[in-house]
């Protein structure tokens, strides 16, 4: 848990039922000012439902939440002045140009008349859309639509930006570009609350991650701390010039304190043991069997390893896009 005095979002026992279905199950967490806080979980975990409750699109069944000290049930309109929301769906107006969409949002949020155009032009420039400012939103690519939707969420200079699955459906290049934009926003001091089911996205962008499964928060920590949880034993990978798999039993016999696993014909991984001792023994073994070592790598656990260890879920569950069966 964070120190509550610098918390910008505080959630206690937040719960949401849709009829009989429990979508969010008594979750509690805090988000610190200026951090990127990620909600990581498979589809149907309750990530979007949580964002919808925090941004006023859905009413909690029970529990409390406050944003910037304002209770979400009592001061929603006040809260909306301070937050920007980018829904999973890029839902601006196809019939309006990029510039007109931003100007409409500026008007709706009460941006003063003399600042609207300047702010809209500034955002179009930041998001690389200044050349397309007069093009209709409906003619944009998915990546451009996403970028403009984020720009619309920033038109009133919010202190907190909610991003729901920001890179879903984007190609690799557009997703990378968008992640860079999110990093830049973070550097500008905007608190970012994002949901994602992409493990590498959470690892790259988030200061802290809450792992959400079946409506419950299983764990909250930094990606580094989560990965450390998965690091139970050292893993060293050796690549040899010649085929080494034939000598696997010999190697295993020498390294009694460790497990030897072939990755492919030329590469083996050694789990456990003391790293320095393993390296010395494998070097001697390589000399003995005339196997030249090409590369040695220490394998660090990924957030995916941590996720699997913490949740017991298969990573394929996370790879499924929304709507996929």
């Amino acid at each position: 848990m964070t120190d509550s005095k610098d918390s910008i979002i505080e959630v206690t026992d937040l719960t949401k039922y849709y009829g009989e279905l429990l979508a969010v199950d008594h979750i509690s967490f805090e988000v610190k000012k200026g951090e990127v806080f990620g909600f990581l979980g498979p589809n149907g975990a309750g990530k979007t439902t949580t964002i919808r409750m925090l941004t006023g699109l859905s009413r909690p069944t029970s529990g409390r939440a406050s944003i910037l000290g304002f209770d979400i049930n009592q001061h929603l309109v006040e809260i909306k002045h301070h937050i920007g929301v980018v829904p999973e769906l890029s839902n601006l107006y196809d019939e309006l140009s990029a510039l007109d969409n931003l100007l409409f949002m500026a008007r709706l949020y009460g941006v003063p008349r003399d600042q609207r155009s300047e702010r809209a032009e500034e955002l179009l420039k930041i998001f690389g859309l200044e050349d397309r400012k007069d093009s209709l939103f409906g003619t944009f690519s998915r990546g451009m639509k996403r970028a403009l939707t984020i720009a619309a969420g920033l038109i009133h200079k919010p202190e907190i930006l909610f991003l729901d699955e920001p890179t879903v459906g984007l190609d690799v290049v557009a997703a990378r570009s968008l992640r860079n934009l999110i990093s830049n926003l973070h550097q500008q001091g905007i608190t970012i609350f994002l949901t994602t089911h992409y493990l590498e996205e959470a690892d790259l962008l988030c200061d802290r991650v809450a792992i959400l499964v079946k409506g419950q928060i299983i764990k909250i920590d930094s990606p580094q701390a989560l990965k450390a949880l998965a690091q139970e034993e050292s893993v060293i990978e050796f690549s040899f010039r010649k085929e080494a798999s034939a000598f696997l039993d010999n190697l295993a016999a020498k390294l009694r304190e460790a497990r030897v696993v072939a990755v492919n014909h030329n590469t083996v991984r050694i789990y456990g043991g003391v790293a320095a001792s393993i390296y010395t023994q494998v070097s001697k073994f390589a000399e003995e069997f005339h196997l030249e070592i090409l590369a040695v790598n220490t394998i660090k656990p990924s957030l995916e390893d941590a996720f699997i260890k913490i949740t017991g879920l298969s990573p394929t569950v996370m790879a499924m896009e929304k709507g996929a069966k």
């Binding site: 006023g56 699109l57 309109v77 006040e78 829904p87 601006l92 107006y93 949002m105 709706l108 009460g110």
Partner: peptide, 13 residues
Amino acid sequence: LGSLERLLLAPVS
């Protein structure tokens, strides 16, 4: 299209 949600996200009842 979900645009109505966009309006409800603004500080308007």
